[in-house]
């Protein structure tokens, strides 16, 4: 139960403002989700660097000297940017897997939020405005991004229970609704070797996509699959390396509004989230159809 926002820029001149625009959209959705907030931001792709975003409840301790230790472990240069409880580690693209293994050894308590060559995920418990300010989301630049405010239904209010959930390299998912067969799916996925960390229904949705893509499905096919295999109510917004997609369940009770101009495609759980976007008064505004997969690519 939640608020979702998403912004996919077509106009490069807006890229420095992506974080600021998404932050404003996110904060308008506070009423729909006061428990926790998160944002996935895509920026700096194809620069040869891979990114691992990690989270720690004890950042002073865990992040101290982490870049140096990781450099020694993999023998390649490592960049690190710390933002509150999160740190983004940059390593050469071909060293991402090696760095992940080394991190598990060096700091077993760290949670990996995302991995990829452009995706960074930041999420924490608290009001969206507080979460946005602790990570300085408004200063971030990028090509596209997704945000989420959460009103927890059945699973715990924790950092790990916050959205977005990463579904694979440069892939993430946010959800509004409530799934009704996630417990069976969680068991099936575990049998297939895909493990979830929380009792959150959305994480199962994310893990489902990961599983389908691991078995050769495209993201589009995996999203089509959700319409068959996931029961309950959902509006999903997913992010990929170079685009984003939307799908709603066949009943489609949870709200969803989209707007498109020459400059951007935007998604909001409510129109309120979109009102401050440039040119919104003349944008094409519509609601995505039930059981229909939408996709935008760069």
């Amino acid at each position: 139960m939640c608020g979702i926002v998403g912004l996919f820029l077509k106009d490069k001149s807006l890229e420095p403002q992506l974080g600021a625009m998404l932050t404003e959209m996110l904060i308008t959705m506070t009423d729909r989700g006061p428990d926790s907030a998160g944002i996935a931001i895509y920026g700096g792709a194809d620069d040869g660097a891979g990114k691992i975003t990690v989270q720690s409840p004890q950042p002073e301790k865990d992040f101290a000297d982490l870049d140096r230790e990781l450099k020694d472990a993999i023998g390649k240069p490592v960049g690190m940017v710390i933002r509150s409880t999160h740190a983004v580690l940059e390593v050469p693209v071909d060293q991402v897997e090696a760095a992940r293994s080394a991190l598990a050894e060096l700091r077993p308590g760290l949670k990996v939020m995302s991995v990829g060559d452009s995706l960074e995920i930041y999420k924490e418990v608290g009001l969206p405005k507080d979460v946005a300010s602790r990570f300085e989301l408004a200063k971030m630049r990028g090509t596209h991004g997704i945000g989420h405010t959460r009103m927890a239904t059945e699973s715990a209010v924790t950092t790990n229970g916050a959205h977005p959930f990463s579904t694979g390299s440069d892939q993430c998912l946010v959800h509004n609704g409530s799934l009704s067969n996630h417990s069976s799916l969680r068991r099936m996925l575990a049998h297939e070797g895909i493990y979830t960390e929380t009792m959150n229904d959305t994480e199962v949705g994310a893990a489902y996509l990961t599983w389908r893509m691991k078995n050769g499905a495209t993201l589009g096919e995996a999203l089509e699959g959700t319409l068959e295999d996931l029961d309950g109510f959902f509006t999903f917004v997913v992010g990929t390396h170079d685009g984003f997609g939307v799908v709603r369940d066949p009943i489609a009770c949870k709200p969803a509004v989209m707007a498109e101009t020459d400059q951007y495609v935007a998604f909001g759980s409510e129109y309120r989230a979109l009102v401050s976007l440039p040119g919104i008064d003349t944008a094409r505004v519509w609601e995505p159809e039930p059981a229909t997969v939408y996709f935008w690519n760069h």
Binding site: M1, D31, G33, G177, C253
Partner: peptide, 14 residues
């Protein structure tokens, strides 16, 4: 069984 113009706690608040 469901209300005609809202679904879930986020809508209920509104």
């Amino acid at each position: 069984c469901r209300h005609p113009d809202w679904t879930g706690p986020d809508d209920l608040e509104i």
